[in-house]
């Protein structure tokens, strides 16, 4: 808030600072941001943990055969991801279900919490999404080599294609394989960042009396869209993780 006022003071008139909401700052003051500093990002990660505990642990504490509302949401999330892992990655991928469920719950909860006004969106930062994507990438690659050894490289050697084009295809496959974590992470952070920035821009227009009704309606519309995006991006991230996992478990084309 104070930051925006300072910016406004410099330039005056109609100013947009749609990116200020993404600034990571220490929560309790102090000298800069060290690795251990408790920042607004830390706060919202903690709130994400609390929200997940509330849903998955407190919500299911009744263990009811006929579920309460919270329990039925928790069960729905469980069933949704369980089925996704089973359908996309195969039955033998079920042992990775807790990891994938952790990823999904973290991303979807952080995305939705980011939509609370004045919230900090953890998943709008490349630092966070690159960590997530790299952990998936490294896990999948290591797992592929541990399970299949050299045969895992068969993933890049398209044996169903004519021999002449195989080297070319292998090159393309290798490139696409290493681009995976990049697209995987930038897709999520980019979507979250763009939606929040657009809402901020509309909010900036609301300062002009003549267009403020339009801008408020636009914010409401964008907000609905963002709710959808928050869920869809978590879904996309998770299902791609399952697809990559399937490559590691069954590298044959």
């Amino acid at each position: 808030m104070a930051t925006e006022a300072a910016h406004g003071g410099e330039e005056g008139g109609l100013v947009f600072h749609p990116m200020d909401q993404f600034i990571v700052k220490p929560l309790f003051g102090g000298e800069g941001v060290h690795w251990y500093t408790i920042t607004n990002a830390t706060l919202w990660m903690a709130l994400t943990v609390l929200a997940i505990v509330a849903l998955m642990v407190l919500g299911t504490s009744g263990r009811n055969r006929i579920p309460s509302r919270m329990q039925s949401v928790a069960e729905m999330a469980y069933g949704f991801i369980y089925k996704m892992v089973e359908d996309v990655a195969g039955k033998d991928a079920i042992r990775f279900f807790p990891y994938i469920f952790t990823l999904f719950m973290f991303i979807v909860t952080a995305n939705l919490l980011g939509l609370v006004p004045t919230a900090f969106t953890v998943t709008s930062h490349f630092a966070a999404t690159i960590l997530l994507a790299l952990s998936v990438f490294l896990t999948v690659t290591v797992l592929g080599f541990v399970l299949h050894g050299k045969q895992f490289l068969g993933l890049f050697w398209v044996s169903s294609a004519p021999l002449a084009v195989r080297p070319l295809l292998a090159l393309i496959e290798v490139i696409s394989y290493f681009v995976r974590p990049v697209s995987h992470s930038i897709r999520l952070a980019g979507n979250m960042m763009a939606g929040h920035a657009v809402i901020k821009v509309f909010a900036g227009f609301a300062a002009i009396a003549a267009v403020s009704p339009i801008s408020i309606v636009a914010i409401a519309g964008m907000y609905g869209l963002e709710l959808l995006v928050a869920f869809i991006q978590a879904y996309v991230f998770t299902i791609l993780t399952c697809v990559y996992l399937k490559d590691a478990l069954h590298p044959a084309h």
């Binding site: 990116m19 200020d20 993404f22 600034i23 990571v24 800069g32 941001v33 060290h34 690795w35 251990y36 500093t37 920042t39 990002a41 830390t42 990660m45 903690a46 994400t48 943990v49 997940i52 505990v53 998955m56 642990v57 807790p98 990891y99 469920f101 952790t102 719950m105 973290f106 953890v122 709008s124 930062h125 490349f126 630092a127 966070a128 960590l131 997530l132 952070a189 960042m193």
Partner: peptide, 28 residues
């Protein structure tokens, strides 16, 4: 682009690892 302010990356990555480990332990 605050996202490209690399001075905050270490902080975010550290806390994110803590967060994910906690969530994983609670869930599993």
């Amino acid at each position: 682009m605050p996202q490209l302010d690399f001075s905050t990356w270490g902080n975010q990555i550290f806390w994110l690892i803590v967060t994910l480990v906690v969530i994983y332990l609670i869930l599993s």
